[in-house]
Design a protein around this nucleic acid. Structure first.
Length: 820
RNA sequence: GCCGAAGUGGUGGAAUUGGCAGACGCGCUGGACUCAAAAUCCAGUGAGGCUCAAACCUCGUGUGGGUUCAAGUCCCACCUUCGGCACCA
């Protein structure tokens, strides 16, 4: 009988479904939560999905077989722009398009044979889900963590929506690549900056996260320690507040620079001869795109505003400029210019012929650079009473003096900004707020949730949000006074929906709350989270933020959502990411059709360790298919010598039987360690391949022991089960196994067979391998040394030469070091 | 510019704590089976030298140095590729 993967895979998939094999109960022992990042339902699985879910499935099945009760759910991150774009393009409705895609992808996932508990499926675009996304918004709102403000925001002209900072990639829209511009709008924000320090500190708790991801988050949060300093403006009752990380260089400040959009600029020039120049400058800056504006290449430029500020300690008068390299959003949008010790200020000072005053002198005279700023450590000069202090000492001292005068204080700034969550798009969770002419901004009462996203709308793809044009949606009554009012028409960023889905999976059908605390506490945190590294900042930071807020408000008992994180590499073809435009896409459907899901999974796990990029190889797939065929034949052709064979009689085992048992047990050990300790599925699979080769050889022997062979085949089928779940079910049944192979206990190795009687010890002379000797295991150092020196091959080298020393590593190696 | 990761045969990759470099797979070569092919099975396969053959010898993990009895692995300098951040004061 041939290996008929189609028949086998269909048979067992329906068996699993009929027998609820993967339905998990909340009350199980040793709870373990495996989670793969839920997909956007684009319509078709790609190889990245296959890789992600195959990894998660091995972990889940392995944990289950090791006695854990495993929660392994799947759902859909199903709000978002592509649905709208596709709907306009194909003249369908986002709702219809999305649900069709979900249908398709679910059936593809089932064909892959992943062990999901489908009873827990959620979709973020379903009212039963987004009701609670809205509920959480209101929770944030009530706790002053959601607020609306007018601000300069990133605007994508093509998507006609605002973007979060995190969604702007080098000045371009993450989604469509259009140049992002700035726009001043009223927008909703989440106060993630309140959590900046905790998000940073708690990275240390995440021992199971890759260092790389933690570092990326750390850089993104961007904590800088420094001081704020207030400079009085001469002839104007105002002060300029600056932020600096180098308060020690206060005496080196020779000018002030403000962001052109800084409100003080207008105030300073208002009604003066400088107003015209400034206005022209500001207009020019505003016309520039985000990329141009923030490019390091851009020449530093500014205009003098006609007034001076006063250094609060030295009393020096500093001309005030508006400068293009100062960002309104960072710090206080203003700086003190210290040309001698900041490269940017230096360039600006050279251009406008401003003074350059050295205040920090490097230890070694020659270390002071020519024609650029010195940003390193040193001793204070030209700084009055601070002269001679080491710069760190001067920092403390100057800040103390500023504090005493009420002109400054220690301060910590973060690069992280508040999270802009409103979008002027249709296909998202409506923000549950009503605007009443009398009561103002009113949250929708909990009992009125969800605010249903209307399905009967018109999508044109241009202009304002489609919701804004839906009279039926917009016009409502005020929950407070009952008079006519208007709904908020912005929807939430889809990252809001995906910031809590892992909690919903613990209690997916709850109609009273987003999730019950006991249920969340029973499963959370996620023991193993798996997904692409592209979410290292956005999703993972937002999910951490949400979890911390929910923890603070008593909704759950964990304050970090993901205990262990595995970031998988990309699937490449010909060295490049698979993409339609490159025409190098390999479709999972085709591979499953030709070789079966087991082969597809096996290849993708075998070709590379999970965190590295994986090069797709059609021939590699063939190889894995051949390997499954080899296992199939090994079992099928010998089924009679496997079935009904009694237990092993240990007393009657010969050396060859023991060698076979050594391989079997070594394989069990290695596969176990490779899966649980390091997720190195590639080496686990290669160890199984070696065992299969050994079993074939053992079977060829005339006097093979059926009990030993049967033992080997039995272990083989169980070890392969997490990788190739269908074929192993069939083989398990064929060899007379009871129940599902996936309900079997994970094998344990027998220490007895791992101890070999004889060991090969390598003998080196001066570090080069010259011989090998067979010795009883555990031979002591002295004896090994003697045996090595007596060896004929070794003697040929040592003859007539003095032996300086002999290094002995028992059971492994002897190195004879010759003198002279 | 700053931060980080990686570089091993023809190829994907092994080598887990400094201890036999190249496991396993792919490809290739030869053989068996076959009328033939496919499939399958068996053997070989880092480079070079020596040899009828085997044994054996030399070189070899991006480059150059170093530490060590012993280095793909540790240290220093550099090159290349990839990823993240980027006028963040």
């Amino acid at each position: 009988m041939k290996y008929d993967f189609r028949r086998i895979e269909e048979k067992w998939q329906s068996y699993w479904e009929k027998n609820d094999l993967y339905t998990v109960s909340d009350s199980g022992e040793n709870r373990y939560y495996t989670l793969e990042m839920f997909p956007y339902p684009s319509g078709k699985l790609h190889m990245g999905h296959v890789r992600n879910y195959s990894i998660g499935d091995v972990v889940s099945r392995f944990k289950t077989m090791n006695g854990s009760t495993v929660l392994h759910p799947m759902g859909w991150d199903s709000f978002g722009l592509p649905a709208e774009n596709a709907a306009i393009k194909n003249n369908t409705h986002p709702n219809e398009w999305t649900w069709n895609n979900i249908e398709n992808m679910r059936s593809q996932l089932k064909k892959l044979g992943i062990s999901y508990d489908w009873n827990r499926e959620v979709a973020s675009c379903h009212p039963d889900y987004y009701k609670w996304t809205q509920w959480l918004f209101l929770l944030f709102y009530k706790n002053n963590l959601a607020y609306k403000k007018r601000s300069q925001v990133n605007w994508c002209p093509s998507c006609a929506t605002v973007l979060a900072n995190e969604q702007v990639v080098s000045g371009e829209c993450e989604r469509c690549g259009s140049t992002v511009t700035k726009k001043e709008l009223e927008q909703w924000f989440f106060r993630i900056t309140d959590y900046a320090q905790r998000l940073l500190d708690d990275l240390e708790k995440l021992g199971g996260w890759p260092e790389k991801v933690k570092l990326m988050q750390k850089n993104w949060i961007g904590r800088s320690e420094g001081a704020s300093v207030d400079f009085a403006i001469e002839g104007l009752g105002e002060e300029i507040r600056v932020f600096t990380t180098r308060p020690d260089t206060l005496f080196g400040a020779t000018f002030m620079a403000l962001a052109p959009e800084h409100p003080l600029c207008r105030q300073i020039v208002s009604g003066t001869a400088y107003e015209k120049d400034f206005t022209q400058f500001l207009e020019r800056i505003k016309r520039m795109s985000e990329i141009e504006r923030t490019s390091t290449e851009l020449e530093k430029e500014g205009v003098f505003l006609g007034k001076y500020a006063v250094n609060p300690i030295s009393g020096r008068k500093l001309p005030i400029y508006a400068a293009n390299y100062i960002l309104l959003e960072y710090g206080s949008g203003a700086i003190m210019g210290v040309p001698a010790h900041d490269q940017r200020d230096y360039e600006f000072a050279v251009k406008y012929k401003l003074d350059i005053v050295e205040v920090v002198r490097p230890e070694a005279e020659e270390a002071a650079p020519e024609g650029q700023a010195y940003e390193g450590p040193g001793t204070m000069v030209n700084s009055g009473k601070y002269d001679g202090m080491y710069y760190t000492e001067a920092m403390d001292s100057i800040v103390e003096d500023l504090e005493r005068k009420g002109k400054g204080k220690k301060e910590i700034k973060y690069r992280l900004r508040d999270w802009l969550i409103s979008r002027q798009r249709y296909w998202g969770a409506p923000i549950p707020i009503v605007y009443c002419p009398d009561c103002g901004e009113v949250p929708v009462p909990e009992k009125d949730l969800p605010v249903i996203l209307p399905i009967d709308i018109e999508l044109t793809g241009t202009g304002a949000s489609p919701l804004a044009r839906s009279e039926k949606f917009v016009n409502t009554t005020c929950p407070g006074c009952g008079k006519p009012a208007k709904r908020e028409t912005d929807t939430m960023d889809t990252f809001v929906c995906s910031s809590w889905y892992f909690l919903r999976f613990t209690d997916p059908k709850n109609t009273e709350a987003p999730f019950a605390k006991e249920k969340a506490d029973a499963w959370m945190p996620v023991d193993q989270y798996i997904g692409g590294v592209e979410h290292a900042i956005l999703h993972l930071m937002y999910a951490r933020f949400f979890t911390k807020v929910l923890y603070d408000l008593g909704l759950c008992s964990c304050d970090e959502p993901f205990e262990n994180l595995l970031t998988q590499g990309m699937v490449l073809k010909d060295g490049a990411k698979m993409s339609k435009s490159k025409g190098n896409v390999v479709s999972p459907e085709d591979i499953i059709e030709r070789y079966g899901a087991d082969t597809a999974r096996l290849f993708i796990l075998f070709a590379a360790p999970p965190e590295k990029d994986l090069e797709w190889s059609d021939q590699g797939v063939e190889g894995c298919y051949r390997f499954l065929g080899r296992i199939w034949r090994l079992v099928e052709e010998n089924v009679n010598s496997i079935k009904g064979v009694g237990g092993m009689d240990r007393a009657s085992l010969n050396a060859e039987d023991r060698e076979m048992l050594y391989v079997i047990n070594r394989t069990v050990k290695k596969v176990t360690e490779d899966i649980q300790g390091r997720f190195n599925f590639n080496t686990a699979i290669s160890a199984i391949m070696e065992m299969v080769n050994a079993l074939y050889q053992y079977r060829e022997r005339e006097a093979f022991n059926p009990a030993v062979f049967s033992e080997g085949v039995n272990k083989l089928v169980v070890l392969m089960a997490p990788f190739a779940p269908h074929i192993t079910e069939e083989l398990w049944e064929m060899t007379g196994g009871e129940g599902s192979v996936h309900r079997q206990k994970w094998p344990v190795f027998d220490e007895e067979f791992l101890v070999k009687d004889m060991t090969t010890v390598v003998v080196q002379v001066n570090g080069k391998v010259r011989s090998r000797i067979q010795v009883p295991s555990g031979t002591d150092e002295e004896e090994l040394k003697g045996l090595a020196l007596e060896d004929e091959r070794v003697k040929a080298y040592t003859d007539g030469r003095s032996i300086r020393k002999v290094i002995v590593v028992p059971d492994k190696l002897v190195n004879v070091v010759l003198g002279g």
